[in-house]
C-alpha cells in the first residue's frame, strides 16, 4: 500500500528526537486517535536552522514527520508556515487516500512549533498556549 519512498522514510527517518534548547515546540494529534506528532525547531534570524520530531503513529505519520522536518530546515518562518501537507505528500510521491489525514499532522505540528516560537518571543507563556492533547 505504501510506495518505496514512503517505506524508505519510515525505515530510515531523519531528524528523530528533540532539538537541544529548542526555540519552538509543536505537539498535535491525540493518542486516542492513534497519532501524536511533536516537532521542535531551532530558529536563527527568522530561519529554521534545525528541526526534529517525535511521533507516536503509523508508518505514514512517521514518514511525513521525517519529511516535513527535512523540508523546513533552511526555510524562513513565513516559508515554513506555507508548507502544506499536500507538498509533503508530493515529496513522498503519494500516500494512500485513507492515510492523507496523517500527513495533515505534520503540517499542523510545524505551524504549532512556529506559533510557539513567536508566542515565546512575544512574551506569551507557552503554557497558556500549549496545544491540547490527551
Amino acid at each position: 500500500m505504501y510506495n518505496e519512498k514512503v517505506m524508505e522514510a519510515f525505515k530510515n527517518p531523519q531528524n528523530v528526537g528533540e532539538v537541544e534548547n529548542y526555540d519552538g515546540l509543536g505537539k498535535v494529534g491525540n493518542a486516542a486517535c492513534g497519532d501524536i506528532m511533536q516537532i521542535t525547531i531551532k530558529v536563527e534570524n527568522d530561519v529554521i536552522t534545525d528541526a526534529k520530531f517525535k511521533t507516536f503513529g503509523c508508518a505514514a505519520a512517521i514518514a511525513t514527520s521525517s519529511t516535513a522536518t527535512q523540508m523546513v530546515i533552511g526555510m524562513t518562518l513565513d516559508e515554513a508556515l506555507k508548507l502544506t501537507n499536500k507538498q509533503v505528500v508530493e515529496y513522498l510521491e503519494g500516500l494512500p487516500p485513507q492515510k492523507l489525514h496523517c500527513s495533515v499532522l505534520a503540517e499542523e505540528a510545524i505551524k504549532a512549533a512556529i506559533e510557539d516560537y513567536r508566542n515565546k518571543k512575544a512574551g506569551i507563556h507557552a503554557k497558556d498556549k500549549e496545544p491540547e492533547y490527551v
Binding site: M7, F10, K11, F56, C58, A59, A61, I62
Partner: peptide, 14 residues
Amino acid sequence: EYIEGESILFSLDL
C-alpha cells in the same frame, strides 16, 4: 504501550 500498531506491523514486515 506508547507505540502504534501499524508501524510495528510494517517494521516486522520489513
